[in-house]
Amino acid sequence: MVGGDRRSEPLGSRQEMKVDPFVSDFDFELIRPLSRSVRLNGFATCLRLEQVYWNILGGMAEHNGCSINTLLSHVDREVHLRHGGVKNFSGLVRVVCVMNGLRDTPSAVMP
């Protein structure tokens, strides 16, 4: 290993994975990016997210008894009120989805 580059190490010399990130029924369709037109507080825009995030947003919206547009408008409004906006709204939405999943997982370690 030169200069800390682990790419040249043989696979067997690395620490073995304790959790396989690819479950047996992994659905590669979940990584397919989809662009959708959404209205954020009355303004039309396009949001490109992977299918898995659209699925999570659908579940969050259903749980809140609203549409995905309403849910995203709430996220947009709150980030403007609390932080003056965000440069990467799609990144924010992805993190909101992940944090929502972590919140619902009792064993998740949150910083």
Rank of each mutant, 00 (worst) to 15 (best):
L71S: 09
R32S: 02
F28L: 02
S24I: 00
R39E: 12
E50N: 02
E16Y: 03
S24D: 03
L81W: 01
G12A: 14
F43Y: 09
E9S: 05
G12R: 10
E16F: 04
Q51C: 03
G65W: 00
V19S: 06
R48N: 12
H63P: 01
F28G: 00
L72N: 08
A61N: 11
Q15A: 11
R36F: 05
G42H: 08
N55Q: 15
L40Q: 13
E29M: 07
E62F: 08
N55C: 05
N69E: 15
N55H: 11
V75L: 14
A61E: 09
L30G: 04
L40T: 12
Q51V: 02
R36P: 06
G42P: 04
N55E: 15
G58W: 04
L71F: 08
T45W: 07
L72P: 09
S13E: 04
L40D: 13
E78C: 08
F43C: 04
T45I: 05
R48F: 05
L72C: 11
V52W: 03
Y53H: 15
F28S: 00
L49N: 00
E9T: 03
F43P: 00
L81Q: 14
A61Q: 10
M60S: 06
P33W: 08
K18Q: 14
V52I: 10
H63L: 13
N64G: 08
G12H: 10
L40R: 13
T45M: 11
S73K: 07
W54E: 10
E78D: 12
S73V: 07
G58K: 12
T45R: 14
L34H: 02
R48M: 12
E62L: 13
F22I: 13
V79E: 11
C66F: 02
C46M: 10
E62K: 14
L34C: 01
I68F: 02
I31Q: 01
S37C: 02
R39S: 15
V23D: 00
P10F: 05
N41T: 09
M17R: 14
T45V: 09
P33R: 12
C66M: 14
L49M: 00
T45D: 12
V79G: 03
S67W: 04
I56R: 09
R39W: 05
D25N: 00
V23Y: 01
R36N: 10
Q15T: 13
D76T: 01
L49G: 00
G42A: 07
S24P: 09
C46E: 15
T70M: 08
L11Q: 11
M60E: 09
A61C: 11
D25E: 03
N64K: 15
G58T: 13
S67I: 06
D27C: 06
A44E: 13
S67E: 10
L11I: 13
I31T: 06
A44P: 06
S67M: 08
G58F: 03
I56M: 08
L34I: 08
V19L: 11
L72Q: 07
F43L: 13
D27P: 04
S24V: 00
G58C: 05
T70R: 10
E78N: 10
F28T: 00
H74C: 05
S73M: 08
W54D: 10
P10Y: 03
R32E: 11
D20Y: 06
V52L: 12
P10G: 07
M17L: 14
V23C: 01
Q15P: 03
V75R: 02
D25H: 00
S67Y: 06
L11P: 06
D27N: 15
V19W: 05
